[in-house]
């Protein structure tokens, strides 16, 4: 399965010319366990001092009238909670999303608007953290230089709660 979450789609539509996009691909592995709940997943770009340069996504059980406990477990994404979540108002526009099923998911971000617009050239790390109810937790970090070389795909792989994680630039002319 392949789901496209285009966070900056509205902004893109408003742009006169399409710009480069950053595609962050997150694979949630299929697990054969007795009790399976979809994981909470957070993705962010960290500065070298671990502070947050850009929040990309947090997938969790969004609170509804029927269930108001979704935010209770956000703190279990413990690095994300520490670096970003605890000082954010949830749900966060363009960041919060529902939990995702096993499979590959793309977070596509316009490089000139939204969270990437203010990213200065330099060294960063893409961090993806996943935690599953009655399950484990895993964090995958992929260091990269910004701006990213469009010819390059960077990737990392989790072993338990996350599968292949990759990031690459999708150029306007490559579409």
């Amino acid at each position: 399965m392949r789901a496209i979450l285009t966070i900056a789609s509205l902004s893109v539509a408003a742009m006169p010319a399409a710009a480069d996009e950053l595609d962050v691909q997150i694979t949630i592995p299929q697990l054969n366990v007795a009790e399976y709940h979809r994981p909470y997943v957070a993705a962010w770009i960290a500065n070298e001092d671990h502070s947050v340069a850009a929040n990309l996504a947090v997938w969790y059980q969004l609170e509804q009238r029927s269930s108001d406990e979704g935010e209770t477990w956000l703190k279990d994404l413990r690095q994300w909670w520490r670096r970003a979540g605890r000082s954010m108002d949830m749900p966060a526009d363009g960041i919060s999303g529902p939990t995702q099923a096993p499979g590959t998911h793309d977070i596509v971000l316009d490089t000139e608007t939204g969270p990437l617009a203010d990213l200065e050239p330099g060294s960063y790390t893409l961090v993806v953290e996943a935690v599953r109810e009655v399950g484990g937790r895993e964090m995958v970090s992929i260091p990269f230089s910004w701006p990213l070389d469009p010819a390059e795909t960077l990737s990392g792989e989790g072993e338990t709660e996350l599968g292949l994680i990759s990031l690459q630039i999708i150029s306007e002319d490559s579409n």
Binding site: E69, E71, T72, L74, K75, W81
Partner: peptide, 8 residues
Amino acid sequence: FTLSGEAQ
């Protein structure tokens, strides 16, 4: 020790 959400 550390909690998230509106009230706990």
